[in-house]
């Protein structure tokens, strides 16, 4: 893949990485402070829980700084950071401990219909979305709830593409999907999300 032309942020990242590798402990603080909110936000969107998101975000930075000597600067530091964050969240969601607690919390609730294979491109009424009728805070919570109901791969591509507004190239680097797969997943994820919010 062609090397990305470094912007101002990327230049700062590279300088701090070099300083950290040279022994400057302050470079670590600068890198964390620069990226912690984006990483934490991404983890919040992917995990749907603030506590899990904080755990994953911390683990992401720990992994990054423990293996930063092997970072070859082929991609931007943020892309590498997001890659590790996505994989960390995925691993945590697949962990037995996470599934146990989620299962315990879900006990007594009706089964979610987010994974059913219904026709996604059906014709609906043209009534305005309820999102326009509620407050901004409620709308954000509703959207996050709809995101949480998506399968993890759909959630990942939706968040990376439409929340974090990354390019297709960056998303393919982060997720490892090829472009066709990514676009297909994005189209299905949009349809599902739209359907969820339309019925809300």
């Amino acid at each position: 893949m062609p090397d990305i032309e470094p912007g101002a942020e990327q230049r700062e990242d590279r300088a701090d990485i070099a300083a950290y590798l040279a022994g400057d402990r302050g470079a670590l603080d600068r890198l964390v402070l620069r990226h912690k909110d984006r990483v934490f936000s991404l983890c919040c969107r992917l995990m749907g829980d603030r506590g899990d998101a904080e755990e994953c975000a911390q683990e992401t930075f720990v992994k990054v700084f423990r293996s930063i000597a092997g970072f070859r600067l082929e991609s931007s530091f943020s892309t590498w950071l997001f890659t590790i964050a996505v994989n960390t969240c995925k691993n945590r969601r697949n962990s037995a401990e996470y599934r146990f607690w989620k299962k315990a919390l879900r006990f007594g609730r009706s089964a979610s219909s987010c994974d059913d294979d219904q026709e996604e491109f059906e014709i609906e009424d043209v009534a305005p979305s309820p999102l326009v009728l509620i407050s901004e805070k409620e709308r954000d919570a509703l959207i996050q709830s709809a995101i949480d109901s998506l399968p993890y791969d759909y959630r990942t591509v939706i968040v990376l593409r439409h929340v974090e507004e990354l390019s297709y190239d960056e998303i393919t680097r982060i997720t490892g999907y090829n472009l066709g797969t990514l676009k297909s997943k994005l189209a299905r994820a949009r349809a599902r999300l739209h359907k969820k919010l339309r019925g809300a």
Binding site: F40, S41, L131, D140, I143
Partner: peptide
């Protein structure tokens, strides 16, 4: 759909 995607983009970032 375009409105929804705009709302997604407008989602506020969560501070650590």
């Amino acid at each position: 759909l375009t409105s929804l995607l705009k709302d997604l983009s407008a989602l506020p970032g969560v501070s650590a």
